[in-house]
Nucleic acid binder design. Structure first.
Lengths: 103, 103
DNA sequence: CAGCATCCGCGAGGATACTG
DNA sequence: CAGTATCCTCGCGGATGCTG
């Protein structure tokens, strides 16, 4: 309320939103890996050293609910599931790189 | 190790260090208030709505140990104590404003 | 393979009482 | 006024076992 058109306002600042959506131990790294192509659950488990199924599952679900990732079920047995960046996720790539650059 | 002179390297990136030193519920706001002048304990307690003495005390001590704030005792009874930005703290003001601007 | 249910440990932060 | 000492709560993340 201090200034009418502030670029850091929550609604107008995608960095704000992204920062919130990526709050969590593995989410930033998951997002970064998603830049390189579709993700698989078991692949992530290996790449995110230290993560377990539970943590990973929760992180992916949260990112899906935040509209960052899309969950794609490939109907073969055994099931394969891919996670890819949504349109919204892709639109946030430049912001992500900015944040990454800051640390 | 991916690139030799990366601006996001911990040692070369003041944003990194500041982000770390300001991790905590009240520290960013304390820093911001410190820009406007010397801080007093009881004043902060009022301005940081929700903070209690314990939380504030720990935050101030951590920021002091991180070299951001200087603790100045004014020897009158009852004791008054002021917290001001150190040289290092002042040197980080531009970085702080950048981070603030991003959210 | 992918994911949920359950249990556990830890650290941040809050409430309150006591002290110099 | 400016803390310190305890105690408590809560959420994140880890470990493990079961299921489709």
């Amino acid at each position: 309320m201090t200034s009418p058109k502030n670029t850091t306002d929550a609604e107008t600042c995608p960095a704000q939103a992204l920062l919130k959506s990526l709050s969590g131990k593995y989410k930033p790294e998951i997002f970064r890996l998603a830049l390189e192509g579709p993700l698989r659950f078991s692949g992530l488990l290996r790449q995110l050293s230290g993560a377990n199924k539970q943590s990973l599952s929760l992180a992916l679900k949260a990112m899906e609910e935040d509209g960052l990732l899309e969950r794609i079920v490939i109907q073969i047995k055994p099931l394969h599931i891919e996670y890819t960046l949504t349109e919204k996720g892709q639109s946030l790539i430049p912001v992500f790189k900015q944040l990454e650059h800051l640390g």
